[in-house]
Structures are given as structure tokens and as C-alpha cells.
């Protein structure tokens, strides 16, 4: 019964978020941009440049990953602050739901919105590539799945930020850490190797830094890798769910007693 109730709450928030995202027309802009990126990359063939298959695929799927991540940060960052700003948080919290349920519902709304947008954009790029006779191979399905798992981390983290920072702050920091995730972790790994003391100090930092690049199979797909082992996918799913839960609990510590 509790699970059914939780699902009902999540469903309410998810449907509302999807309707809002479609009606804000952000998705259409991203869709048009994705098509343009593929078209622009392919247009080089008209100038006599050949063997661009990898380049076109890379441009298409990298754009989709980037656009979906940007939209994900924006959607997650506005879930709670907009309700507070519009004062609609009051009628929501006046319902027989706990603040934890509200937080999880908002997280689910942001995550599903990200996944739906990402899958839609990816399918459009896939259709374009198929039309251009550049099929990406079966790893494409794993690419969709793993990236969707990555959005668990992204949405949990940004919703957590939005409970501690101003909406603009959450958006900026969320965007910075998401897009710069690879740079931060690579830099830390470099520092890590220089001294054992630093290694002890930086390992926990490394663990909590966004490991967003782990969820990106774009290059493997572009270069035609075989599908990765299902256990690796299971590991990523576990990591994504655990880290999202961790960030939501941190958010809840702040939100549960927050005066609104």
C-alpha cells in the first residue's frame, strides 16, 4: 500500500513535469539543435571530405548527451525552488504527503523528464544516422540505458544543491560540476598519484565527486565496441541509485525542517 501510494505521488509529479517541459518548448529547441549538429557534420561530405562516419556519429551523440545533461540540470534545479517561488509549495505540502515523499517525487519527475528527453533526442539522431547509412551497433541500447542511469546521479545531486543554494546558484554549480565532471576527476587522479598522504586525503573527495563520465558510452559506441558486460551495467545501476539516494538524504537533512 505504501509503495502504491509512493508511486501515485511520483506519478503525479512526473506527469506534471513532463507536461511542463513539453509546453515550455525547450525540448523542441534541443531537438532542432541535435538535427542541425548531425546535418552540419554530414555537410562536410558535400565538400569532398570522405570517411566522416565516426565524426558524424560523435557529433550527433555527443550533442545529445550534452543537451540532455544541460536540460537535466535545469529541470532538476527548478523542481523545488519554483514551487517555493510560486508559493505552490504550500498547497502541495498541505496534502497528506511527507517532505521526503515530496523530495523523492520531485527527483522522479526530474529523472523521468531527463530520460524521456534523452531517449527522444537519441532516437532522432539514430534515425538520421540510419538514413545516412551509419548504424551505431547494438551498444546503442546500452548507451541509452547507462546514460539514463547517469541521470540518477545528476538529478539527485542538483536537487540536493537546490535545497542549499539559491536557484541560480544551484543551476550554475550543477552545470559546472556536470559539464566539468571529467576534468575534475582526471585532475584529482593526477594529484592522487603524487604522494600517499594526498592519496588518503583525496580518495574520499574522489568518491563523492561527480563520476558522470562513467555513464558515458558515447566513444565506445562511436568506435563500434561490442556491448559491455551486463555485470558492469548492474554495477553502474547500483552506483547510480546509491549516489542518488545519498544526495537525496543530504537534501532531506536540510528540507525536512526548513521553514517555508
Amino acid at each position: 500500500m505504501t509503495l502504491a501510494r509512493d508511486m501515485q505521488i511520483c506519478r503525479a509529479f512526473v506527469i506534471a513535469a513532463l507536461l511542463e517541459t513539453v509546453r515550455r518548448r525547450e525540448v523542441y529547441v534541443l531537438l532542432a539543435l541535435s538535427v542541425l549538429m548531425v546535418a552540419a557534420a554530414y555537410s562536410f561530405t558535400f565538400f569532398g571530405v570522405h570517411g566522416l562516419e565516426l565524426f558524424v556519429k560523435d557529433m550527433g551523440f555527443s550533442s545529445v548527451g550534452l543537451f540532455a545533461s544541460v536540460l537535466g540540470v535545469a529541470v532538476a534545479a527548478r523542481q523545488l525552488p519554483e514551487e517555493i517561488q510560486r508559493r505552490t509549495i504550500y498547497p502541495l505540502l498541505a496534502r497528506p504527503i511527507t517532505r521526503w515523499q515530496l523530495l523523492v517525487g520531485k527527483f522522479a519527475a526530474a529523472w523521468i523528464t531527463c530520460v524521456v528527453t534523452f531517449v527522444t533526442l537519441s532516437l532522432v539522431v539514430l534515425l538520421l544516422l540510419l538514413a545516412l547509412r551509419m548504424p551505431p551497433g547494438w551498444i546503442f541500447l546500452q548507451y541509452l540505458l547507462v546514460r539514463s542511469l547517469g541521470f540518477l546521479w545528476l538529478c539527485g545531486f542538483v536537487i540536493c544543491l537546490s535545497t542549499y543554494l539559491s536557484p541560480a546558484g544551484a543551476l550554475t554549480v550543477g552545470m559546472l560540476l556536470t559539464l566539468g565532471a571529467g576534468v575534475f576527476t582526471r585532475t584529482l587522479m593526477f594529484v592522487d598519484g603524487t604522494s600517499p598522504v594526498m592519496k588518503v586525503l583525496l580518495t574520499p573527495v574522489y568518491a563523492f565527486l561527480p563520476q558522470y563520465s562513467l555513464f558515458d558510452l558515447t566513444k565506445k559506441m562511436v568506435y563500434g565496441w561490442e556491448p559491455i558486460h551486463p555485470l558492469a551495467i548492474a554495477g553502474l545501476a547500483l552506483y547510480g541509485a546509491a549516489i542518488a539516494f545519498f544526495w537525496l538524504r543530504i537534501a532531506w537533512l536540510r528540507f525536512r525542517r526548513q521553514a517555508i
Binding site: Q8, I9, R11, A12, F13, I15, A16, L19, E20, R23, R24, R86, R87, T88, Y90, P91, L92, A94, R95, P96, I97
Partner: peptide, 30 residues
């Protein structure tokens, strides 16, 4: 709050939802 109806002074319900959808969402939450 299961038996309470609450109305704040001003609430700008989601501009991108319709009144029917807004009420539907609140019904689900309840």
C-alpha cells in the same frame, strides 16, 4: 492533513498546466 483543505493568500499554480491538470495532480497527491 488528510482531512484539511488549505488555500494560501496567493499561489501562482504552474503556468504550463491547465486548471483541470492542476486539480488532477492535487487529487493524486491526496
Amino acid at each position: 492533513r488528510g482531512q484539511v483543505g488549505f488555500l494560501p493568500e496567493t499561489a501562482l499554480y504552474s503556468p504550463f498546466l491547465t486548471p483541470a491538470e492542476t486539480l488532477w495532480m492535487h487529487g493524486e497527491l491526496h
